[in-house]
């Protein structure tokens, strides 16, 4: 990880989810970036990263799809950093980087498909893929954020939920687990650091990287509901007001299965599901609508009004 790199202007790869169910994440990420003076330049003519469906059928095609995004960012747009807020996109771009560095078969397929598609083959190492958490942590940092907070999150108890793809598998994230200042794959803490800097009380949440059953939500909804219910009940048990998320799939799963757990299993839970970028936006004094609180399924607007944040 190049700590000194200037991340004030980076290529932005929103991915498909942020144009759909995760639109509030896109909205709040862009709004927070603008407020903090960080320039997000959307990758031109981007495509799907190959998340889940393509990867499970043809992993090499997924590698190619992700490599095309990085190729455009580096070769056409001249960027050395791509920021992907979605865990699935972030994971897949990192995986493609690893595949193209270590697997000649993947390289051959990517070269062939790139040539056929008429664009330069991505050269491994040309860009660094970072998550929205890395972006804010490295570009602004806790101290920089503290200086800009106008509406402290003081009084909010937050359980941070990172999901499974932000840290796994470890070997595609070589910059993690590098000691102080780097992210941990065992106990991720970047979201904790940022929201604590915004004034929130971070609760000790033991299921922060546990599976939410996101990939099974259509084929086996009951398992997903049970997994999510356990995550929600654990958050309630920790006295958390909010579960902060940084992945659109996890976020949607938590929201939808919270409702399903109540209607199907009669289990009501209380934690609000909110993107971490929405929370940072509120702490920066931004309007609830600007950060897309109204777009969340989990209704938190009255809660934030009570707290003087909306």
């Amino acid at each position: 990880m190049s700590e000194q790199k200037d991340l004030k202007r980076v290529a932005y790869y929103p991915g498909c989810a942020l144009e759909g169910t995760g639109h509030a994440y896109d909205r709040s990420t862009r709004a927070v970036g603008k407020e903090l003076g960080l320039d997000l330049v959307e990758v031109e003519n981007w495509n799907c990263c190959g998340a889940m469906e393509v990867k499970n059928i043809d992993p090499k095609l997924q590698t190619y799809l992700s490599s095309r995004v990085m190729s455009i960012a580096s070769e056409d747009m001249g960027f050395d950093t791509v920021m992907a807020p979605c865990n699935g996109c972030y994971h897949n771009l990192k995986k493609a980087e690893y595949d193209l560095t270590n697997d000649p078969e993947n390289v051959a397929v990517t070269e062939r498909l790139s040539e056929k598609a008429g664009h330069p083959t991505y050269k491994p190492g040309s860009v660094e893929t970072i998550h929205a958490l890395d972006w804010l942590k490295r570009a602004i940092g806790e101290e920089g954020l503290k200086e800009r907070i106008t509406h402290s999150l003081k009084g909010l108890k937050i359980a941070n939920y990172y999901g499974c793809m932000y840290t796994r598998p470890r070997h595609i994230f070589p910059e993690k687990d590098q000691g102080p200042g780097s992210e941990s794959t065992l106990q991720p803490h970047f979201m904790d650091d940022l929201l604590e800097a915004a004034g929130a009380e971070i609760v000790d949440y033991p299921l922060k990287t546990a599976c939410c059953g996101g990939a099974h939500t259509l084929s086996d909804s009951d398992t997903s509901t049970k997994l999510v219910l356990n995550l929600l009940e654990a958050a309630d048990e920790c006295d958390a007001d909010i579960i902060a998320t940084e992945c659109p799939t996890c976020h949607s799963g938590l929201e939808m299965h919270q409702i399903r757990a109540e209607t199907k299993l009669g289990k009501k839970t209380n934690a609000k599901i909110v993107y971490f970028t929405q929370l940072i936006g509120l702490a920066l004094g931004m309007n609830a609508r600007t950060v897309g609180i109204h777009e969340n399924v989990s209704d938190s607007i009255n809660f934030f009004r009570e707290k003087g944040l909306a």
Binding site: A51, M52, K55, N56, P59, Q62, G88, H91, K95, Y98, D99, C164, M165, R168, P169, I172, C211, G213, G214, A215, H216, S219, D220, T223, L227
Partner: peptide
């Protein structure tokens, strides 16, 4: 959930193909 995998398809989306 993992043990239902054979009947229902890949349970975890993150890493197996890698």
């Amino acid at each position: 959930g993992k043990m239902e995998e054979d009947a229902l398809g890949e349970f975890c989306c993150s890493s197996r193909p890698l």
